[in-house]
Write a protein that binds this DNA or RNA. Structure first.
Length: 416
DNA sequence: TCTGGGGTCCTCAGACGA
DNA sequence: TCTGTCGTCTGAGGACCC
């Protein structure tokens, strides 16, 4: 059987997308992310990477490494629109496309070869289409399963150089008979599910490479790392990954969280922000046609200590007001006096809303069907006149001002 | 002067009913 | 009626992913 799982990863996607609409920045160190004091880097151009800047680094640190770099506030909705065009290109070659994020997807081309050629040829066609139509470049890994295809992509990627990317292979294939040879020299950190904590635990066991991991008895791994992780890593070390490419994956949770540019101390302001985020969650739920059953609240204090609390409702809801009231009730017992750095509101246990909205006695009255109608009307007005045009009174600050929508500030506060 | 946001999955502890 | 056990559910927290 040939390797027929493709992993496609866009090269420096957010930065490359920005360069398409701002070509004058080509060849410069460009960083996309949160531009404020508390932001992080979402993507860095290959020129910026040669200064040691990488994703998830704080913007503060990135500025110190390269003061002349150009910092752009991320624009999530623009990247999402570019991403959907890229995904459409993938779907020309196979219906089995599983997006992992805006810039990555798995493709199963096992059934497409008669029409489109060998996996390598399909990969080349996809790269050509994306380059011609969107002005972007991507790297492709091809292997018998998802895990190996993703690792193969890493070997296909360009590397950073001071004058821009040094081209990589573009496409890397791992065939069945090459699996062990490919995997063995890799560090354990490259395995899916191995982060800093697991690296250090494996290191204490004298395991730093996949070869050493593969030589470790399965039972000992399970004893050291637990049943799930131990068995998982044992399979991966042998190149085994049975997961299929799933074209349609239902969301399991939905949340909205924000780090504030300055810590919050005012109870009124904290309440307002919780209701504003709950409103945003409710709006997204209604847009997607989902109801949430469990409401959760996340609080991060000035010292970075983080608390999560959740409550399961009697009846699922898509009302921002109901979510907000429940989220607010969860804050009791948390000492906020040191200052609140981050707040987050989310829902889990999602069901489709066309299954019917059941109301409990608690829902009837000011949070009942009339309120839900009002929220739908607000959605329509905001769609037409903008998010600042209207909203619930509970989302106003003590000065009667509606806090600015921060939906696009996905990588921390901006500096405006 | 630092350490985002949106997710998934896992582990552990406590509550609870059979 | 009391006690222990087991399975299940819920909630909190952590690790990890992009």
């Amino acid at each position: 059987m040939t390797s027929h799982i493709l992993h496609v990863d866009m090269d420096a996607f957010f930065v490359s997308a920005e360069l398409v609409r701002r070509p004058e920045l080509r060849g410069q160190p460009v960083v996309v992310g949160g531009t404020g004091g508390r932001g992080v880097v979402a993507a860095a151009s290959y020129e910026a990477r040669s200064f040691g800047i990488f994703s998830a680094m704080s913007t503060y640190q990135a500025r110190r490494l390269c003061p002349r770099a150009i910092f752009l506030q991320g624009d999530h909705s623009y990247y999402a629109s570019v991403s959907s065009k890229v995904m459409e290109i993938f779907e020309r070659y196979t219906p089995l496309v599983e997006p992992i994020s805006l810039d990555e997807a798995f493709l199963d081309v096992g059934g497409s070869m008669r029409l489109h050629g060998l996996p390598f040829e399909i990969a080349q066609s996809i790269r050509r289409d994306i380059n011609h139509e969107q002005g972007l470049s991507c790297s492709v890994g091809i292997a018998p399963n998802k895990f190996l295809a993703k690792l193969a992509t890493e070997e296909a990627k360009p590397s950073p150089g001071p004058k821009g990317p040094i081209p990589g292979l573009g496409v890397k294939i791992v065939e069945e008979h090459e699996i062990q040879e490919f995997l063995d020299p890799l560090p354990v950190r490259s395995l899916w599910g191995v982060g800093p904590v697991t690296v250090s635990r494996l290191d204490q066991m004298g395991v730093t490479t996949v070869f050493q991991l593969r030589s470790f008895p399965r039972d000992s791994l399970i004893q050291a790392l637990g049943k799930t992780l131990g068995a998982h890593l044992h399979r991966l070390a042998h190149g085994v990954d049975e997961r299929n490419v799933e074209a349609h994956q239902a969301a399991k949770s939905l949340s909205h969280e924000e780090t504030f540019s300055e810590d919050l101390y005012s109870e009124q302001r904290i309440t307002t922000e919780i209701f504003r985020m709950a409103d945003a969650v409710g709006k997204r739920l209604r847009g997607l046609g989902f109801l949430g059953t469990t409401v959760s609240l996340k609080v991060r204090l000035k010292d970075f200590s983080t608390f999560t609390r959740s409550i399961t409702l009697l009846n699922p809801t898509d009302s921002g007001r109901v979510i907000g009231k429940n989220a607010l009730s969860l804050i009791e017992g948390i000492d906020l006096s040191s200052g609140v750095r981050l707040l987050g509101v989310g829902v889990q246990n999602l069901t489709e809303s066309d299954l019917g909205l059941q109301l409990s006695f608690d829902d009837i009255g000011k949070d009942g069907p009339e309120w839900r109608d009002a929220e739908e009307a607000i959605d329509k007005i905001q769609e037409r006149f903008g998010s600042q045009s209207i909203g619930a009174a509970s989302t106003l600050t003590e000065k009667g001002v509606r806090p600015k929508e921060k939906g696009s500030q996905q990588w921390g506060p901006s500096n405006d």
